[in-house]
Design a protein around this nucleic acid. Structure first.
Length: 578
RNA sequence: GCCCCCGUAGCUCAGUUGGAUAGAGCGGCCGCCUUCUAAGCGGCGGGUCGCAGGUUCGAGUCCUGCCGGGGGCGCCA
């Protein structure tokens, strides 16, 4: 489906071409009440042509055919105001409704999009700091997949490195059975803290841990077996959390740091062959241009440490190469916290220098803003008590349950529980999705779990209300919302709703353009607002005529379909009743 | 010290890549449930878009400099 914007743009382009071929009509949704779109191209062109803008706009318009599509009007300042014809709006609406994709075209050129997100550390808690990367990453996966891209999820878990010497020895000390149990039931912090405490207090353990790391890196089978227990039991727990959160990640999506171990020497060799390696203070480094350290001196990406070992930078480079090489990614998304911005910028720069990122492909740091505590300081797990992600989920669901009990006592206990789950998890997710992902934000229980305003419950409620109309009227919902019932669009509320419904495609495109789910959230909130306005002003079941009733039922069904679909793209369920 | 991000209503945030009179939600005040779900709707009040310059027909949006907050800056990830 072409979309309203495209339909108008192509027609307007004809007019602008007669004056200045290829000139951008600058078509935008109108900021003025009563009109749908505005074309601002005449203003800037008028300046260049030395003509009054309004005159030029009129001239452009003279060769534009908008018959049956829209009515154009030239504002004295040179804006071309466009008001869509009701018939065109209705026909477009019917086309969108009849489309299983609700009027959203698949992309012309599908990409392979690799999405790196969540990335917890083995034997460490999934805490509140992971919640946003996990939720935003998941929503981006769903959005990209729906748009027609081939999505590869990658959970880059921290399953390697020196801490594993300590962790494995702790596992040996407390016994495999107990250790496995602690991890799988989610007492990861307890396990880690205890290991840390013993480690810090015992030189003997420090020495054992050091030797164990060597064994691990040399591939000692017994050590690997113990390591595997840590990884598997942690993953068992992570999967449980993902399941509760309704996140797509599974153990099959895990491509942890250890996966790249065998590739690291090759990465270094390749960088050396490319002449990018420099020895500096005993370490082997790449100095990508444009990065400076404290004294203004070039900033290195350390590829091999002075002791011969590899650090995280090498692993990230290997992953970068792997994603564009083996996986043939067109876009590699790193849904990672904002503080790592410079690190990834350097990695991407080196990857480009090394020729690993093909022309037309791109690596993108999908930066996630820091979560701040109430004091405005960065919210870190070490400072104060770390909030477990699962506790966040449980708190959200239990608060929602209280609300459901209060508002919907008529529902069965089972249904109440289901609604509480959907509403609680939805509220938690939507809180993270609905604001610009790159901006830092203040963590606040009350705001996060608020059930009013621009929140998931508001949207879920809108869907439930619509569905209840059909239930109340004893009407088969499937008969509507497929474009088979004529829509008349009599009043302004219906018209506004129709126009909004037709903006779904643009909303999804906008969200994908900058990998910003909050743009879809904003759209859905606006849509729900337009619907409630319509719902307040236009009786549906009690409509004056059969024809009007059907038209409005069609609008209802279409709205519910878009709302539920959009929420699903965000990873949020829409309960049948609330 | 250098670099990056942010600063919009009392609070939390949008603002479609430079367009017309800057918008929501929450909080405050007023009104609306015997009528399709009040987790809702309507209305009122609330702004030198951090400050000062600049670019141009036009700046919350772009440039420069300040102020304030956050983050980053070699062998942790």
């Amino acid at each position: 489906m072409a979309g309203l914007h495209a339909a108008l743009a192509t027609r307007l382009q004809v007019g602008f071409d007669t004056v200045a071929p290829g000139w951008d009509p600058v078509l935008r949704p109108s900021s003025q009440a009563g009109t749908d779109f505005q074309a601002n191209g005449a203003l800037s062109l008028a300046k260049q042509m030395g003509q009054p803008p309004a005159e030029l706009a009129a001239h452009v318009l003279a060769s534009v055919d908008l018959q049956g599509v829209a009515v154009a009007e030239v504002h004295r300042k040179g804006f071309i105001n466009l008001t869509l014809e009701r018939g065109f709006l209705a026909a477009s609406l019917a086309a969108a409704a009849s489309d299983p994709r609700l009027g959203v075209d698949s992309v012309e050129v599908p990409w392979t999009v690799v999405v790196d997100y969540s990335a917890p550390n083995v034997a460490k808690e999934l805490h509140a700091g992971h919640v946003r990367t996990t939720i935003v990453g998941d929503a981006l996966c769903r959005l990209a997949a729906f748009a027609g891209h081939h999505v590869v999820r990658e959970n880059h878990i921290g399953d390697w490195g020196t801490p594993f010497g300590m962790l494995i020895e702790h596992l040996v000390d407390i016994g495999e059975e107990l250790g496995a149990r602690e991890l799988s039931v989610g007492d990861l912090d307890g396990f880690y803290r205890q290991a840390r405490a013993v480690f810090d207090a015992s030189d003997e353990l420090k020495e054992r841990a050091r030797r164990r790391v060597v064994l691990l890196q040399s591939g000692d089978p017994e050590t690997l077996r113990l390591w595997r227990i840590l990884v598997d039991e942690s993953m068992r727990y992570f999967s449980e959390v993902y399941h509760r959160l309704g996140v797509l990640l599974t153990p099959e999506d895990v491509v942890g740091e250890s996966f790249y171990n065998d590739l690291l020497p090759g990465v270094v060799a390749e960088l050396e062959a490319a002449g990018l390696l420099v020895d500096s203070e005993g370490a082997r480094c790449v100095f990508p241009p444009g990065f400076a350290g404290r004294g203004g001196e070039p900033l290195p990406l350390i590829v091999q440490k002075s002791d011969g070992g590899f650090g995280y930078a090498t692993t990230d480079l290997a992953a970068l190469k792997d994603r564009f090489g083996r996986l043939r990614a067109d876009r590699a998304l790193y849904v990672v916290g904002a503080p790592q911005r410079q690190h990834f910028a350097m990695c991407f720069a080196v990857g480009r220098q090394a020729g690993w990122i093909p022309d037309g492909a791109d690596a993108v740091h999908v930066s996630i803003g820091n979560m701040l505590g109430p004091d405005g300081k960065i919210f870190r797990s070490r400072a104060g008590e770390a909030v477990k992600l699962i506790e966040l989920v449980e708190e959200a669901v239990s608060r929602a349950a209280g609300k459901v009990q209060e508002k919907s006592p008529g529902l069965s206990a089972d249904e109440q529980a289901g609604v509480a789950q959907a509403v609680g998890v939805g509220a938690l997710k939507y809180g993270d999705l609905s604001t610009d992902r790159a901006r830092e934000y203040v963590f606040d229980w009350d705001r996060l779990l608020a059930m009013e305003g621009n929140t998931a419950p508001y949207l879920q409620y809108a869907v439930a209300r619509i569905r209840s109309i059909f239930r109340r009227g004893g009407i088969d919902r499937s008969a509507y919302g497929s474009g088979r019932v004529p829509v008349t669009l009599d009043g302004p509320a219906e018209r506004a709703l129709a126009r909004r419904l037709l903006g779904y495609e643009a909303a999804i495109q906008g969200a994908l353009e900058t990998w910003s789910p909050h743009k879809l959230c904003t759209y859905l909130f606006d849509l729900a607002g337009d619907f409630t306005c319509f719902f307040e002003n236009c009786p549906v079941l009690r409509a004056a005529t059969e024809e009007t009733r059907d038209s409005r039922l069609e609008l209802c069904a279409h709205t519910a379909a878009v709302l539920a679909h959009g929420l699903a793209l965000l990873g949020i369920e829409a309960p049948e009743r609330m």
